[in-house]
Amino acid sequence: MINNNIKDMAKTIMFVEDSESVREAVKFTLEKAGYNVILGTDGSDALKYLENPDIDLVLTDLYMPNMDGIGLIKEIRKSKNHKHVPILFLTTETHKHKKIEAREAGATGWIVKPFVPEKLITTIRKVLR
């Protein structure tokens, strides 16, 4: 299905995740829904994209090597360009405390893992539209 609103399509999402297959699958899903996708392999890798002013939403995993999702969220909130960008993180039901931690670090919302592509897109639209 393609997005109804043509203007939506140019929105750019940065997806940060250490698993290559998840990265690719989510990229596929997001691109299919009409978004531009920037991929980061972990928190510190993602930092280099923060100079890019064209990020409309950040989607990040929490458990990653080098810099985890919480660290990344904090960095984004400190950054010049993306102080107020919506950030969604991926979490599992078993990590409720992580949810609080990420929220306190400045995340906008979360997506519960494991997720199905449709659900991912609905949640993203909820924040982005």
């Binding site: 250490d18 698993s19 998840v22 699958a25 458990y63 990653m64 090597p65 599992t92 893992k113 199905v116």
Partner: peptide, 14 residues
């Protein structure tokens, strides 16, 4: 822990 976490999350996804 991280590897298990990834296996669990991605496993269900795929």
């Amino acid at each position: 822990f991280r590897v298990m976490h990834t296996l669990k999350g991605s496993g269900a996804m795929f």
